[in-house]
Design a protein around this nucleic acid. Sequence first.
RNA 1: GUGGUAGUAGCUCAGUUGGUUAGAGCGUUGGAUUGUGGCUCCGAAGGUCGCGGGUUCGAGUCCCGUCUAUCACCCCA
Length: 450
Amino acid sequence: MALIEPRTLKGFRDFLPAQMIPREKLMETARTVYRRYGFVPIDTPALELLEVLTGKGSEETDRQMYHFTDAGGREVGMRFDLTVPFARFAAQHINELGTPFKRYHIAPVWRGETPQAGRFREFVQCDFDTIGTTGVVSDIETALVIHELLQAIGIDQFQIRINNRQVLAAFLQAQGLENSSTAVLRALDKFEKVGGDQVKKELENAGLNALQADSVLALAAMRGSNDELLSQLATMVTGNEIGEQGVQRLRDLTSALRAAGVPESRYRIDVSIARGLDYYTGVVFETTLGELPSIGSICSGGRYDNLAGLYTKQYLPGIGASLGLDRLLAALEQLGRIPKQPRSADVFIALFDPNGINDYFRLASIVRAAGWSAEVFPESKKLAQQLKYADQRGFRVALIAGSDELAKGTVQIKDLMNKISTEVEWRENPEQLSQALRTMMRLSDDTLLA
RNA sequence: GUGGUAGUAGCUCAGUUGGUUAGAGCGUUGGAUUGUGGCUCCGAAGGUCGCGGGUUCGAGUCCCGUCUAUCACCCCA
């Protein structure tokens, strides 16, 4: 019978251990950082009623959403992001949760768009959000979490770009552009990429007069330190209450970041960051990698004060951001920062003497009880082959015991990096083995640092 | 969804104006003194040349379609 070609859907991927191990590590880091700030975990279904999901992001997001009719005739959508389901979740459960409520959610989302480097149809987002407070404190905390998160992951060169929708709204209002806001913001967003002439052309196509187009270009061209930009923006929005509020919040945010000791190079006010998602109402964030800006934003978010209003009359303002796990991993891979062969376990136990199986498992449990992972080789192959396997999988230490050692109740502990081995007695006193391991692990840690 | 580029072993690629059994390196695997790894040497496995159709005596090589990847548009993590 004809074989079915084994393959995955366009934009969907399998993950081999070499990819999955760093992937899990990243999720673990995100969890740790989120918990450190008091965010708690939740989960929601992959599928929602279509009406819950559509019309919340933008026309484009609706077009990219996977949807179908289920066997009961219900219109069903696959979640496009984690923010919209969270707004639904909060509206539904807020009486049990109380406000403010801070949650994180690490889960896959699906978008039916054309795949590219760092863009997939199924990818994991690591969201954290705060709901039920409009204060600038949560704006600040969101930025601090983004910063700490990337730092914890071990990325040095990144920049959080910050803007505020209120400021943009004030600008649009002043120019009489409220009705073409989408086109204007889109053009603004492209400024850095395509340049002023192209943007101007686009603006004119969108029906702006020369005066209006020039004002947009002037906005896009604003440059300077964060403080300089703040004062320029303040002048621009003078007299507009919303705009003044936005500028003030940006000012509070940047001064808090400075006070928290976040290096100036790590964040920057950027008036061209607009974000396509319609639900943002205040501060917006995008984070780009200094070494690979072309992959796009790896951590984005912002304030959405009206999103839950679609599901409840209760006022539930929110703010949050999302780390794009798969995009970040794609970037790290391109930068050669993903180890080719990640370690499967710390300690390798050679199966030397087939009659000693019980002892090998006893050794393994001593190692595990001491806090390390251990693996017993499943066959009594030649020792050279077993050591080669151990070497290739990145084990740090091998335990070797043949019939001689087993008879004496000893085992050879071998540091695989330094090729140094010592023999210890373990049968009478297992603590000797864990002690010797501790010493050896410390030694190999030192060599790693050197 | 639209357009550009690409598609040969698990990976990186070679394959001369279309010509007979499609190659290399790395990796995998076995061996080179029945107790010690990353080096070396020898051997082996592994390819419907992405898939389908067409032109031709003959197609990995030319043409068309299709799928996938990638880039751009669009949007975004």
